[in-house]
């Protein structure tokens, strides 16, 4: 007896049983049987056809109109059958896509692995956490032979895969123009040209780019519409906004970016963040920039890496451990 016969016999037994006495127990058996049929990928029209053939065997004298009505029902079920098969194939495609996203997320991790450089007398802390599998935030350090460290922080609007692909574009553009690294304004202008030509009209990128030259203890920076960071003046024990004026990348072809400079004295800090940091919402509303400053101040006695980790932990708690946006925080501190 093959599967089909077995199925036929089993269905026949259950149906006969039910026709004899309409018990809950038999109904339950029917439910279990239908679950098995779904597992075996039996389509709706096949199920109806099974029912009809069993019925014909049990009642050979079934009236002609009733018989015809089953043919009609069978025809009706074919549409459901299509929908069912489509559902099946979508499910397997979804599984395939999910595993591809998993692979892409791993590749992104490798690609963007933010190795923090080791620079004498510079304490660096950096953290970046995606809200979903793929992050739209990006940070990247480059250290040159003079121990100059450049740091880029970018936030691609839109999340997920398009944002992640966009970031690879930024990374390769930056890697391909090493001679520009010392001029933050020029770096952004160059990136803007590339991004403007290559992104979807609804997309743009905000970016902050800075370069620390330890020989003169100076930080040179420029911003393209990015959430302003902070400068911590250790002597005055004060935080100020690290303001930059500049249009986001990808909106207008001809855009120029103003360059700024700050001298870092001992223990001064430059704090850079993504707008996920100041746009996150706690249950009581928005987390304000002042609160971020207060959190940094609370942990200011720790190392830069410990500060960014503690700030992240507290914000995560405030948001009940559910990030709405990607989160990136980078701190540079000149050690005495």
């Amino acid at each position: 007896m093959d599967d089909r016969d077995l199925q036929y016999q089993k269905y026949k037994a259950i149906l006969e049983n039910y026709l004899e006495e309409q018990s809950e127990q038999t109904l339950y058996k029917g439910q279990q049987f239908s679950r098995k049929m779904i597992e075996q990928k039996i389509s709706p029209e096949e199920a109806v056809s099974l029912h009809v053939s069993v019925l014909e065997e049990l009642f050979p004298d079934i009236p002609e109109p009733l018989k015809n009505s089953y043919d009609f029902l069978l025809e009706m079920m074919i549409g459901y059958g299509f929908a069912y098969r489509e559902h099946q194939s979508l499910r397997s495609r979804q599984q395939q896509l999910e595993s591809e996203i998993e692979i892409a997320a791993n590749m992104q991790q490798t690609l963007l692995a933010g190795d923090k450089p080791e620079v004498p007398n510079l304490d660096i802390g950096a953290i970046s956490k995606p809200a979903q599998k793929m992050s739209g935030d990006y940070y990247h350090f480059v250290q040159d032979e003079n121990d100059c460290v450049s740091v880029a922080i970018a936030d691609v609007i839109g999340k997920g895969i398009p944002a992640a692909l966009c970031m690879s574009m930024i990374k390769y553009t930056m890697d391909s123009a090493p001679e520009q690294r010392m001029q933050p304004g020029a770096v952004l202008e160059n990136l803007n040209r590339v991004v403007e030509q290559n992104v979807d009209p609804n997309m743009f990128i905000t970016m902050f780019y800075g370069l620390y030259d330890p020989r003169v203890h100076s930080f040179y920076y420029a911003g393209a519409g990015h959430e302003p960071g902070f400068f911590y003046d250790a002597e005055k024990d004060e935080f100020e906004e690290l303001f930059t004026k500049g249009l986001v990348l990808g909106v207008s072809k001809k855009t120029s970016y103003q360059e700024y400079q700050r001298v870092l004295n001992g223990n001064d800090m430059v704090i850079m963040l993504s707008d996920g940091v100041t746009e996150c919402r706690s249950t009581n509303g928005f987390i304000e920039r002042d609160e971020i400053v207060a959190l940094i101040r609370k942990y200011i006695h720790l190392s830069a890496q410990e500060i960014v980790e503690e700030v992240y932990r507290e914000l995560e708690r405030l948001q009940e451990f559910e990030l709405r946006d990607d989160f990136t925080l980078v701190i540079l501190r000149r050690e005495v």
Binding site: I157, N202, F204, T206, V251, E279
Partner: peptide, 15 residues
């Protein structure tokens, strides 16, 4: 409004 909202206005401006 978040940055996705800004993106809509950027798209509208370009259009």
């Amino acid at each position: 409004m978040d940055s996705t909202g800004l993106g809509v206005f950027v798209g509208a401006l370009k259009s």
